[in-house]
Amino acid sequence: MVLPEHLLHLTGGQRVLDIAAENVRDLVLELEERHPGLRAALGRAAVAIDGQIFQDAFLEAIGPDSEVFFLPRIEGG
């Protein structure tokens, strides 16, 4: 999984992490475990799982080889 630039200070500069998780909820819990403060910092970030963008992901499934990105929430006019 990949973090946005402005959160890298919370992971000591680490942008790409390998995490085993079955869904976004577990992924975020694991992230918080490893890097306290990250969960709050992610806030309302959108999540992309294998290219599919979820504005509000929680129980969305993550596969063993899935690529997960956190990105700023996208709005519109």
């Binding site: 946005p4 992309a48 294998d50 290219g51 599919q52 690529e67 990105f69 956190f70 990105l71």
Partner: peptide, 17 residues
Amino acid sequence: KNAAEEGTQAPYGPKFP
């Protein structure tokens, strides 16, 4: 010549469907 397509890593992160 440079166009993104399915599988291209978008600049904002994920690969385009």
